[in-house]
């Protein structure tokens, strides 16, 4: 049918597939096949130059029962995910503010959004230096205000490292969430508010009864993007802490990177990847359901 188009319709269909194929090939070779390959790898013993050997659940058993580092990375990823609700709460407040008819609102929007398109590697390096204990701005401000006596080495401290990285992550993403929520706010029909005012609803009632429920798809879109960010925040961790001190800021993705590209344990790292992928899929599906099923139309691949 593709080689010898006889009728006009057949020729058209062949043409359509010709248009589609190049893009589909990209996804076949760099999404679908790698995912399946990961499955195969995770059930085998393999390292570069060695033959495949069936391993069954060996790697999964090791991961779940003997590998404390995996559990630490998993726990850290869950903690890192807490940055998402915090960012959303801040972003929602900001979106409500810049949605009002005030002077300079588009300037405010631009300035708050500004960190988002920045290269994360540069952002990480800059924040690392802001947290520095001898020359960092943050320590200087805290000491000038008399809040601390001794400088704190935030990123070398077991108690502060994770929170510090999360602050940098929130700083970068909050403007993006604000824009998403703002778009959601602007899609709420004004007559709903007018009707509520006529019915005598107070401002906070209007917020809880109209704004928040109608904003649900936008909020859960932010949730999905936040979940993705917590599974993919490699650049920030790599430049700010390298996963340290100890394993205090090790996330699943940095753990996968180290297991595969530092220790050459590709098979084991593939098993960790599979677990990460299914966790992500579960969380994204739940968030998507709660959003009313319409939040999936984003490029989560990036």
């Amino acid at each position: 049918m593709f080689l010898k188009p006889k009728t006009k319709r057949n020729r058209e269909i062949a043409f359509i597939w010709m248009l589609l194929l190049p893009a589909l090939m990209v996804y076949l070779f760099y999404r679908i096949i790698p995912l399946l390959w990961n499955f195969v790898l995770s059930f085998s013993f393999w390292s570069p130059g060695k033959p495949f050997e069936y391993a069954g659940l060996y790697h999964y058993e090791e991961m779940l029962f003997y590998d404390d580092a995996f559990w630490t990375a998993l726990k850290n990823t869950a903690v890192f995910m807490l940055a998402t609700p915090i960012s959303i709460a801040i972003a929602l407040g900001l979106a409500l503010l810049v949605d009002q008819k005030i002077r300079g609102r588009s300037l405010y929007r631009t300035l708050i959004f500004l960190p988002y398109p920045m290269m994360v590697v540069a952002v990480g390096i800059v924040w690392r230096w802001l947290y520095n204990d001898s020359v960092g701005l943050i320590n200087y401000v805290l000491r000038s205000l008399g809040l601390i006596d001794q400088p704190i080495a935030f990123l070398e401290s077991y108690s502060f490292a994770m929170a510090s990285v999360m602050v940098a992550a929130i700083w970068q993403i909050v403007g993006f969430f604000m824009i998403i929520l703002l778009t959601g706010l602007q899609n709420i029909p004004a007559h709903l508010y007018e009707a509520a005012v006529i019915d005598g609803a107070r401002a906070h009632h209007r917020f809880w009864r109209i704004t928040l429920p109608l904003l649900r798809p936008s909020i859960f879109l932010c949730v999905i993007l936040g979940v993705i960010a917590s599974f993919t925040s490699f650049d920030l961790i790599y430049t700010m802490t390298g996963g340290g001190p100890g394993l205090a800021t090790e996330l699943l993705i940095t753990y996968i990177y180290k297991a595969s590209f530092t220790l050459s344990r590709f098979d084991y790292a593939a098993a960790v990847t599979i677990v990460m992928f299914f966790l992500f899929l579960t969380l994204a599906t739940v968030a998507n359901r709660l959003a009313g099923g319409d939040a999936g139309k984003v490029d989560i691949a990036d």
Binding site: Y30, I32, P34, N38, F234, F266, I300, A301
Partner: peptide, 21 residues
């Protein structure tokens, strides 16, 4: 559905085979 499925696979979950490929 092929495209939507691909969309649900973060690139970070494919780095090892993508590297081998």
């Amino acid at each position: 559905s092929f495209l939507l499925m691909s969309m649900m696979i973060p690139f970070h979950a494919t780095i090892i085979p993508a590297y081998l490929l």
